Amino acid sequence: MTYKLILNGKTLKGETTTEAVDAATAEKVFKQYANDNGSDGEWTYDDATKTFTVTE
């Protein structure tokens, strides 16, 4: 399945997607991506749209 990440950071904004077997796997990928790019904030997940959002 395709999962989407929306970044609403102070310095990093945008979207990216990943293919993953489940939401937990996608979350690990996205959290590593956000960490690698210095983005940290409040995470939410919408199962209906398969979208993670991180807001700083």
Rank of each mutant, 00 (worst) to 15 (best):
T2W: 12
N35K: 15
F30V: 00
A26H: 00
E42K: 09
D47I: 07
T55Y: 08
T2N: 06
K50M: 08
E15F: 14
V21W: 12
K31C: 05
Y33L: 06
V29T: 10
D22F: 02
Y3M: 02
E19Y: 15
D47G: 07
A48N: 10
T44P: 00
E42W: 11
T25F: 06
D36E: 13
T49A: 05
K13D: 05
T44M: 08
V29F: 15
K4L: 07
N37M: 15
V29A: 07
W43N: 00
D47V: 08
A34M: 13
K13Q: 11
A20K: 01
T25K: 05
T51Y: 01
E15T: 12
E19N: 12
L5Y: 02
G9H: 06
M1C: 14
K28N: 06
S39T: 14
N35H: 14
N35G: 09
D46Q: 03
K13L: 07
S39M: 15
Y45R: 00
E27N: 04
Y45D: 00
L7Y: 10
E19M: 13
N37F: 15
K10H: 11
F30I: 00
D40W: 15
T44Q: 08
D46S: 05
D36S: 09
A26E: 00
A24H: 09
L5Q: 01
T2Y: 07
T53D: 02
T53Q: 06
K10R: 12
K28V: 09
T18A: 07
G14K: 14
T55I: 08
G41P: 02
K13C: 14
E42L: 12
T44A: 10
K50N: 07
G41M: 11
T51V: 04
A20D: 01
A26K: 00
K31H: 07
K50P: 01
G41F: 12
K28H: 07
Q32C: 05
K31S: 03
I6G: 01
W43Q: 00
A26S: 00
T53C: 06
E56P: 11
D40P: 08
Y33P: 01
W43D: 01
L5D: 03
A34Y: 08
T49L: 06
D46R: 02
Y3R: 03
E56K: 06
D47C: 06
S39Y: 15
T25C: 07
Y33F: 12
W43T: 01
T2V: 13
A23H: 08
D22W: 01
G14N: 09
T18L: 11
T49R: 05
T25L: 06
T55E: 07
N37T: 10
Y3N: 04
V54K: 02
D47M: 07
D47E: 13
E19P: 04
N8W: 12
N8Y: 12
Y3H: 04
D22Y: 02
Y33C: 03
D40R: 12
A24L: 10
K10M: 11
T44D: 08
A34S: 04
T53F: 10
E19C: 14
V21C: 12
V54H: 03
T16E: 05
N8Q: 12
D46C: 10
D40N: 12
K28T: 07
T18Q: 04
D22V: 01
N37R: 13
G9I: 09
A20G: 03
L12V: 13
A24Y: 09
A34T: 08
T2K: 11
V29E: 06
G9T: 15
T17D: 04
G38W: 12
Y33T: 03
Y33G: 01
V21A: 12
E42R: 09
A20T: 04
V29R: 08
T49F: 04
T11V: 11
S39Q: 14
T17Y: 13
E56Y: 13
L7H: 03
E56A: 10
F52Y: 05
G14F: 15
D47S: 10
T17P: 01
E27S: 06
D22C: 04
T2H: 07
K13R: 11
A24I: 09
G14Q: 13
K4N: 05
L5H: 02
T51P: 00
A26T: 00
A34L: 14
K31M: 08
E42V: 13
A48F: 10
I6A: 03
D36W: 10
K13E: 05
K10Q: 11
G41D: 04
W43L: 04
K10E: 09
A20M: 02
W43G: 00
A24N: 07
V29G: 02
V21L: 11
G41N: 06
T51I: 05
L12H: 13
E27R: 08
T55P: 01
D46H: 05
E19G: 04
A20Y: 02
L12F: 14
Y45K: 00
G38Q: 08
T55V: 08
L7I: 15
V54R: 03
K28L: 11
V54Q: 03
A48E: 12
N8P: 04
T17R: 07
F30C: 00
V29Q: 08
V29Y: 15
T17Q: 10
T11M: 10
D46L: 03
N8I: 15
T44R: 07
D22A: 03
D22G: 03
F52T: 01
T18C: 15
D36R: 08
K10L: 14
K28S: 08
A23F: 13
A48T: 11
Q32H: 06
A34R: 02
S39C: 15
T18K: 03
F52P: 01
A23Q: 10
T55N: 09
N37G: 05
A24W: 08
N35Q: 15
D47K: 07
A24S: 09
T49P: 00
A23D: 04
K50H: 11
Y33A: 03
E15S: 10
T18W: 06
V21F: 11
N35S: 14
E19F: 15
G38F: 14
T49I: 05
T49Y: 04
I6D: 02
W43H: 00
D36N: 09
G38C: 10
D22K: 02
N8G: 05
T53K: 04
G14E: 10
N35I: 15
E27M: 13
I6F: 06
T25S: 13
E56L: 11
T49V: 04
W43C: 00
K28W: 07
K4M: 06
T17W: 13
E15L: 09
T55H: 08
Y45Q: 00
D36L: 12
F30A: 00
K31P: 01
K50T: 02
D40E: 12
V54I: 12
Q32P: 01
S39F: 15
D46T: 03
N37A: 12
K31R: 15
G14A: 12
T18F: 11
T17N: 05
T44H: 13
G38A: 08
D22R: 01
N35F: 14
A48K: 10
Q32E: 10
T16I: 15
E15V: 13
K28P: 02
G9Y: 09
E42A: 09
A26D: 01
T25G: 07
G38I: 13
N37L: 15
T25M: 11
L12K: 13
Y45I: 01
E19K: 12
G9R: 06
F30L: 05
V54P: 00
V21S: 11
F30E: 01
G38H: 10
E27Q: 10
D36V: 11
T18V: 14
T51S: 04
A26C: 01
W43I: 03
T2L: 13
T11P: 05
E27V: 05
K10C: 14
T11Y: 13
G9P: 03
T55C: 08
A20H: 02
E27C: 15
L7D: 01
T44W: 07
T16S: 07
D40I: 14
S39D: 05
T51H: 01
M1T: 14
F52I: 01
A26G: 00
T11S: 11
K50I: 02
V29W: 14
T25I: 06
E42C: 12
T18Y: 09
Y45G: 00
Q32R: 10
G41Y: 13
T18E: 03
Q32Y: 04
Y3I: 04
T51N: 01
T51C: 02
A48Y: 09
